[in-house]
């Protein structure tokens, strides 16, 4: 199943030059906007410059936000699955990661406490931890 695991590690590659271009565009548009304010303070309104600089700021922010979009998730990503083993005699429980060949009610190794037989009592998806 190695090929399945490898799919999850796919990440979106973003060109550094692209980020630099957008960043430069953002800085220049902010500078242009600042100049519009300065000229307005001196009593002159440069409408065309205002519209252009506001548009440039909006577009560059939008493009930067788009770069942060998470890679496409298809649902094939590996999930952590846990297996709980339980002693039928003393009730001793242990949880470990799922191994190929595990199934519920499968008889497994002896209990470390009472040496009686143990069974796999549950197999379930590990709850996702919120970061």
């Amino acid at each position: 199943m190695d090929n399945i695991k490898s799919t999850s590690t796919q990440t979106k590659k973003i060109s550094t030059i692209f980020i630099v271009i957008i960043s430069v565009m953002l800085i220049l548009s902010i500078a242009a906007l600042f100049q519009v304010f300065e000229s307005y303070r001196r009593g002159r309104l440069d409408t065309a410059n205002l519209i252009l600089s506001v548009s440039a700021v909006t577009i560059s922010i939008y493009m930067l936000l788009q770069l942060r979009v998470k890679p496409l998730k298809l649902g094939f990503e590996p999930q952590k699955v846990l297996t709980t083993i339980e002693c039928v005699s003393c009730g001793y429980k242990m949880t470990r990661e799922f191994k190929a060949g595990d199934f519920m009610f499968k008889k497994v190794e002896s209990c470390p406490q009472c040496n009686e037989r143990m069974i796999i009592s549950s197999i379930y998806k590990a709850p996702q931890q919120k970061s």
Binding site: G75, P78, Q79, I123
Partner: peptide, 17 residues
């Protein structure tokens, strides 16, 4: 539904409940 099938495929390959 398709995302569920994709997830199912993984479970089926490993025989998980």
């Amino acid at each position: 539904e398709c995302e569920a099938f994709a997830s199912a495929l993984r479970a089926f390959t490993l025989g998980q409940p």
